[in-house]
């Protein structure tokens, strides 16, 4: 278990009103994949402001934006996970994520909805042998409403490791 995962599980705070320890997760769509952020880490959802490119910054950094006077680093989610996807559409939304250290902007295509993720529907990265990126806590399965359909999968992101450290 990598240290990142330990910290991340701490941020996956269960909804106190839930008896089963369900975790509210914001599902977003970026580059054909569905990702989930612990709702507790999402500060704000914005319409993308103008982006200032930062030369020499890591690949996944789209640039910086100004949110009410604060300069915020904007990340491209698929690139963070080294998924080489060509961004075809302009970003639809920017999430402001609190990684515990600073606010980080994450550009996404669209915001889907908030799911209450039951603990037994989360498969932690540490339990999988696959070489998943450090930014990933695990994979969440959202049971489809239709019994026969495939459950939807989402990649649960660890906000703490987003450029932290």
């Amino acid at each position: 278990m990598s240290p990142g995962t330990v910290r991340a599980t701490a941020t996956l705070a269960p909804d106190p009103t839930s008896e089963t320890g369900a975790v509210p997760v914001l599902a977003v769509c970026a580059g054909e994949e569905v990702y989930g952020f612990p709702l507790s880490s999402v500060r704000e959802i914005l319409v993308p402001p103008p982006i200032a490119l930062v030369p020499r910054a890591p690949d996944a950094v789209l640039g910086v934006i100004s949110v009410r006077g604060q300069i915020i680093t904007l990340l491209d989610l698929p690139k963070m996970l080294h998924l080489e996807l060509e961004q075809v559409n302009p970003y639809g939304r920017v999430l402001l994520i609190d990684n515990g250290d600073e606010l980080i902007g994450v550009a996404v295509d669209s915001v889907i909805q908030v799911y209450r993720m039951e603990p037994n529907h989360i498969e932690y990265a540490s339990a999988m042998s696959a070489e998943l990126s450090d930014y990933v806590v695990g994979i969440g399965r959202i049971p489809a409403r239709d019994q026969d359909a495939e459950p939807e999968m989402l990649i649960l992101i660890d906000p703490v490791s987003l450029l932290g450290g």
Binding site: A52, R56, V64, Q70, I71, T73, D101, E102
Partner: peptide, 16 residues
Amino acid sequence: KSLGKSLSSVRGFAGA
């Protein structure tokens, strides 16, 4: 304004 911790390793810029 500082560029934030995440970009502190990027050289050539004093801030934004």
